[in-house]
Write a protein that binds this DNA or RNA. Structure first.
Length: 264
DNA sequence: ATGGCGAGCGGAGCTCGA
């Protein structure tokens, strides 16, 4: 089974690219982030015609997550219990969606950005990751095969960005964020993109501005954490860097995880 | 060259992103 995760930066602007990607890479399950639409606005028809079931979770033009699957889509869960809220009128944002696909519990995650170290969004980000980790521990203890995939908005290592000094004092590289990210590994999860692609300066995101992609000045912020029961079944991970090329690309590229489900 | 912000909303210029 092939699972992919992709911050697509608007599904309506890039439905064609998503369809081409699914076909090109023969993807079974696609976790999307930043769909940027309400559930009713999601362009379902083209994906259904291609053989996918669709679960969406979106309230507005902000955030939004979805899961497409052609290997089953069960127990769909918008958000996780106790998910921290944000906003003037605090509310759960559309940043997490769980579904069971072909024996694997997949969570499409769009971790809050943080905005700045002194911004309330930063505390929100840390609380959000902390609460998710509590669930992750319980799922691992239960022996579940869990894939926590998405845009984590954390740069775990200095070598996951072209010039870490340029990010001094900013979000994504701060120690509390890195600690919150590592906490999943300490809970027994394995970030399998690192396992299969350990080389430095291998990015999943390049800003639209300042020729970041042509200069290969990017960041590695999209990851796939697998639970102890799932990790041994992962046979390969790839980053589809070519998806960043050309007109109309998202600023993120897909991360592709292959799972041996022959025993499931 | 793989390219110089992009998307949504709304109908200009703002918010958000990382």
């Amino acid at each position: 089974m092939r699972i992919a995760t992709w911050n697509i930066n608007s599904i309506r602007a890039r439905a064609d690219r998503a369809l081409a990607f699914l076909e090109r890479e023969d993807v079974d399950v696609l976790a999307l982030q930043e769909t940027k639409c309400k559930d009713a606005q999601f362009p379902r028809e083209a994906f259904e015609a291609a053989g996918y079931e669709i679960a969406t979770f979106g309230f507005s033009q902000w955030n939004g997550v979805a899961i497409l699957s052609r290997v089953g889509l069960d127990d769909v869960t918008p958000g996780f219990d106790g998910q921290p809220e944000f906003g003037e009128t605090p509310a759960v944002e559309a940043r997490a969606l769980g579904a069971t696909c072909g024996g694997v519990r997949v969570w499409s995650l769009y971790v809050p950005h943080g905005r700045a170290l002194d911004n309330p969004h930063y505390a929100y980000k840390l609380a959000w990751l902390g609460r998710l980790r509590e669930h992750a521990v319980a799922w691992a203890d239960a022996g579940d095969k869990v894939a926590l995939v998405g845009d984590w908005n954390v740069v775990p290592l200095d070598t996951d960005v072209w010039d870490v000094a340029a990010f001094e004092g900013q979000t994504h590289v701060s120690e509390p964020e890195r600690e919150a990210f590592r906490a999943f590994a300490e809970a027994g999860y394995t970030e399998v993109s690192r396992q299969f692609l350990p080389d430095e300066h291998r990015y999943t995101y390049w800003d639209y501005q300042q020729l970041r992609f042509p200069r290969n000045e990017g960041m590695r912020i999209d990851f796939a954490y697998t639970s102890p029961a799932l990790t041994p079944l992962v046979t390969d991970v790839r980053i589809d860097r070519d998806e960043r090329r050309g007109k109309g690309a998202s600023d993120h590229v897909p991360v592709i995880v292959d799972v041996d489900t022959s025993a499931l």
